[in-house]
Amino acid sequence: MSEIKRITTPFTEEQARSLRAGDRVLISGVLLTGRDAAHKRIAETLKAGEPLPVDLRDQIIYYVGPSPAKPGAVIGAAGPTTSGRMDVYVPGFLRDLGLRGMIGKGYRSQPVRDALQEYGAVYFGAVGGLGALLSKRIQSAEVVAYEDLGPEAIYRLEVEEFPVVVVNDAYGGDAYREGTAQYEADEEEEAA
């Protein structure tokens, strides 16, 4: 297994370009959450030329809709959701807002992978379904925008050593596709 890398947010284009698909990374610092509804609203705000409630430059968006926190707990279960639903917004966010990274699960579209190369950004994968485990890496959570969206509001999370893998890097690498190809067993080959 590859050596573990560490990054602290906010992180630069240079740092983003130092990461490669398959790298295991522990992220510390601030993550901003956002999913379908928040992305839609940010895009609409941009289009209307109005100011955004959060600065995304060199930040990482974590695609998550946590479950409600128990009394006294920081957050409820908080694993990644499927990233592909946000694909349509990503090239614009990378170009216009300077977004540097995203954490989610699942495949990204070709336009997203192309934009990562163009703007020097990274798509990290967390393991889907580890909501209870990943919540332990979150030190604080506060709503910073769109509170009316409930679990889809934008939260500012402080995280400590949040475990991810680089899925799509700034060079066209893809850890899902490369990993799957490595373990794909061709029946004809085995028979030969």
Binding site: M1, V64, G65, P66, S67, K70, A73, G76, A77, A78, G79, T81, V127, G128, G129, L130, G131, A132, L133, S135, K136, P151, Y183
Partner: peptide, 25 residues
């Protein structure tokens, strides 16, 4: 893969012991 499978087992254990959802969805 093996590490992820162990994490899934660990995640289920935390959820059960602490009474929180195993997955946010």
């Amino acid at each position: 893969g093996r590490e992820i499978m162990r994490q899934i087992l660990e995640n289920a254990k935390i959820a059960k012991e602490e009474g929180i959802p195993a997955c946010q969805d």
